[in-house]
Design a protein around this nucleic acid. Structure first.
Lengths: 155, 155
DNA sequence: TTGAATAGTTCATATTTCGAAGTATATGCG
DNA sequence: CGCATATACTTCGAAATATGAACTATTCAA
């Protein structure tokens, strides 16, 4: 089933090669999350992962590249399931902070460690290569966060 | 808007750091595809990218982690728009090969080069780092392709 | 205090995805 | 051969998701 297109890939620019690897890994993760059968939709998993600490819903909307109403319903589902609670932001009482419960933190751990496992299984990299990849991935992520999730190319 | 959680990320395992970078890049790419306003849905873009050469629809379904009926409607849209044609697979006349048209190849080029551009803009890596990241990404992708897209963790 | 802006919610609509039943072709077996 | 079963894709209606406009509550500025 899987094609050997490695020769084709080698002809592409490094940037495109990089993106294709990223793609493959991301899809593999999505597949793995389905297989986990943990009762969460993809969007819900993503929100769990993004909630490494309490965040305002608007911030999450920006982080997750979606609109406020989607955040509302995703948060509803996770609250219903007992993974998070809404707490008024003391700094601005219009806003809610989404805060993971203990159960939520636990589930987040499961998701994260699944992601880590997946990387180990899927990548086939040794420890040194993994460390190097992680270093670059961290740098990339920092750059993206700095650049600003929106960076709005119009829209 | 973007948080400085780089200190938090540093505490995680290299594998998880890697996955988080991958996530960030993938999301950024999705955002960028929207901004392209090229008249294609995400699924349609993905199919274009996967069609580096003619493929049977069933193979695409496996590649794209989806069901045959979704492939049918995505292919319908792309055929309608003139990006691909269906051709009977001579080896098995039940099956169709999806083949990009010239217009489709051109669009694929646009999408790929956009992905490359995006990587350059988003990652902030210099040429050496990009080359190294690309090398590892290629290795990862080859491993995933070899392992087999399904590798079915049940389901 | 009032008017404008912002954070999130509601809900109806649009979009996307899925899955069961259907059509056509292939394969295996008596 | 001829029938049964399997496979490749399609259809189409239902389910799941995502979106946007109108709404409530709170903040901010004058």
């Amino acid at each position: 089933m899987p094609h050997d297109d490695s020769a084709l890939v080698r002809c592409l620019s490094p940037e495109v090669q990089a993106m294709m690897g990223v793609y493959a890994l991301y899809w593999k993760l999505e597949e793995s999350l389905d297989a986990l059968e943990v009762g969460l939709s993809h969007q819900e998993c993503h929100m769990m992962v993004k909630l490494e600490r309490p965040k305002r819903m608007g911030v999450l909307a920006a982080d997750m590249l979606t609109v406020p109403s989607t955040i509302t319903s995703t948060a509803d589902a996770l609250e219903e399931a007992g993974y998070l609670t809404r707490q008024r932001d003391p700094e601005d009482r219009r806003a809610w902070l989404l805060v993971l419960t203990d159960k939520g933190l636990e589930m987040r751990q499961v998701l994260m460690s699944e992601a880590g496992d997946l990387f180990r299984r899927a990548s086939g990299l040794d420890a040194d290569e993994t460390a190097e990849f992680a270093r670059l991935a961290r740098k990339i992520r920092e750059n993206i966060m700095k650049t600003g999730i929106p960076e709005g190319l119009k829209k």
